[in-house]
Amino acid sequence: MDFCFFLIGFQEFNKPLKDVGNVACYCGHCHNQTAFATRTINCVTLFFIPVLPFYYQKRLKCNTCGTTGGLDSTAIDRLKKGEPVAIG
Rank of each mutant, 00 (worst) to 15 (best):
M1K: 06
F3L: 14
F3T: 14
F3W: 07
F3D: 14
C4D: 11
C4K: 13
C4Q: 13
F5Y: 12
F5E: 13
F6E: 14
F6I: 12
F6T: 06
F6K: 11
L7F: 11
L7Y: 08
I8S: 04
I8F: 10
F10N: 10
E12L: 14
E12T: 14
E12H: 12
N14V: 06
K15N: 11
K15M: 09
K15I: 05
K15F: 10
P16Q: 07
P16A: 10
P16D: 07
L17E: 01
L17I: 12
L17W: 02
L17C: 15
L17Y: 01
K18V: 07
K18P: 03
K18C: 05
K18N: 11
K18F: 04
D19T: 09
V20H: 02
N22G: 03
N22R: 15
V23D: 03
A24V: 04
C25I: 01
Y26P: 00
Y26K: 12
C27S: 09
C27M: 07
C27H: 06
C27A: 10
G28F: 02
H29R: 11
H29T: 12
H31V: 05
N32P: 00
N32L: 08
N32S: 13
Q33E: 12
Q33L: 03
T34A: 14
T34C: 08
F36Y: 15
A37S: 13
A37M: 07
T38A: 05
T38S: 03
R39W: 06
R39S: 06
T40C: 05
T40K: 09
I41R: 02
I41F: 01
N42P: 00
N42T: 08
C43A: 15
C43E: 10
V44H: 04
T45C: 15
T45F: 10
L46R: 13
L46W: 13
F48Y: 10
F48T: 08
I49G: 02
P50V: 05
V51E: 06
V51I: 15
V51N: 07
L52T: 04
L52C: 07
L52A: 08
L52I: 12
L52D: 00
P53L: 04
F54I: 09
Y55G: 04
Y56W: 13
Q57N: 09
Q57S: 09
Q57I: 07
Q57R: 14
K58G: 02
K58N: 13
R59W: 00
R59F: 00
L60F: 01
L60D: 01
L60T: 00
K61L: 14
C62F: 03
N63W: 07
N63M: 09
T64C: 08
T64A: 12
G66R: 11
T67F: 08
T68N: 05
G69H: 00
G69F: 01
L71E: 03
L71M: 03
L71F: 02
A75N: 07
A75E: 08
I76F: 06
I76W: 02
I76G: 02
I76L: 15
I76E: 15
R78I: 02
R78G: 01
R78E: 09
L79E: 03
K80R: 14
K81V: 03
K81Y: 04
G82F: 05
G82E: 11
G82W: 05
E83W: 10
E83R: 06
E83D: 13
P84F: 06
V85C: 04
V85F: 01
A86C: 11
A86H: 07
A86S: 15
I87Y: 00
I87C: 01
G88R: 10
G88Q: 09
